[in-house]
Amino acid sequence: MAQTVSLSFFRFGPLSARLWALGMMGAARLSLPKIPDIGFWKLCGSGIGEGFTPVPNTAVYAILATWPDEATARDRIATHPLFHRYRRRAFEHWTVFLSTQSVRGQWSGQTPFKPAGLPPDRPRPGSMPDKPTDPAPEPGKGPVAALTRATIKPRILTRFWGRVPDISAMIGADPNVAFKIGIGEVPWLHQVTFSIWPDTATMAAFARTGPHAAAIRAVRDEGWFREELYARFAILSDTGTWNGSSPLERLRS
Rank of each mutant, 00 (worst) to 15 (best):
Q101G: 06
F83N: 02
S99D: 12
T72F: 04
H80K: 08
S99V: 11
V103N: 00
S108N: 06
R76I: 09
R89E: 12
R74F: 10
R85Q: 12
P112G: 01
A71D: 09
L82E: 08
A90D: 07
R87Q: 07
F97C: 08
I77R: 07
H80S: 07
H80Y: 12
E92D: 09
H84I: 10
R88Y: 14
A90V: 08
R85I: 01
A71T: 09
E92W: 02
T111Y: 00
D75H: 15
R85H: 07
S102D: 03
P81N: 03
A90Y: 12
Q106M: 10
Q110S: 11
Q106N: 09
V96W: 13
F113Y: 12
R87T: 04
V96A: 08
D75K: 15
F113K: 02
P81D: 08
F97M: 04
L82R: 05
T72W: 11
R87G: 05
R74M: 11
R87N: 02
V103R: 01
S99H: 13
G109V: 05
F83R: 11
A78M: 09
H84K: 11
S99T: 12
D75F: 09
Q110C: 06
F83V: 06
F83Y: 14
A71F: 07
T79E: 13
R74A: 11
A90R: 06
V103H: 01
E92L: 06
S102M: 01
Y86F: 14
L98G: 03
G109A: 04
S108K: 00
F113C: 04
V96G: 12
V103C: 02
E92K: 01
I77W: 12
R76P: 10
T95D: 13
A71S: 14
S102H: 03
L98S: 06
L98I: 00
V96M: 14
L82H: 05
T100H: 05
R76G: 05
S108D: 06
E92N: 08
E92Q: 10
W94L: 04
Y86M: 05
F97K: 06
W107F: 02
E70S: 14
T79W: 06
F97D: 02
